[in-house]
Design a protein around this nucleic acid. Structure first.
Length: 112
DNA sequence: AGAATGACGCTGA
DNA sequence: TTCAGCGCCATTC
């Protein structure tokens, strides 16, 4: 068992994965939302870092997290995982155009 | 230790 | 609506 430690001592990554895991199929969340959920308001960039460190394939639905601008964050440093993300979302029924943009307003997931 | 980088977000033009 | 600029802060060099 893991001893009771301050939130900061628990892996930031683990907390991110914990809140991303329950995002239902066909729904989306933004980096800012995830940061807010784990009590790290304003740390959207760190959420991106955590997802980047995720080893693929992963049971964590990382592809359901996009930017608040309503589009997949395309970056050369992602070695193609950005396009994989596009494919996964389309496979779940979320239309994504060639620029990685999607109807965030329609699929945004608001947790109970 | 200091500077650069980045899977972000908001505001204003 | 699109674009540039700035604030943000852990990670990396």
């Amino acid at each position: 068992m893991r001893p009771a430690l301050p939130a900061a001592a628990v892996g930031f990554d683990q907390r991110v994965y914990a809140v991303v895991a329950p995002i239902p199929q066909g729904r989306l969340a933004t980096y800012g939302q995830v940061a807010d959920w784990i009590g790290a308001y304003g740390c959207a960039r760190q959420v991106g870092w955590s997802l980047r460190r995720l080893a693929l394939p992963s049971p964590v639905p990382w592809h359901r997290v996009v930017s608040a601008r309503g589009q997949i964050s395309m970056s050369l440093s992602r070695e193609g995982s950005d396009w994989i993300q596009r494919e996964l979302l389309i496979a779940e029924g979320i239309p994504v155009d060639g620029a990685g943009r999607l109807a965030l307003r329609s699929y945004l997931w608001v947790p109970q």
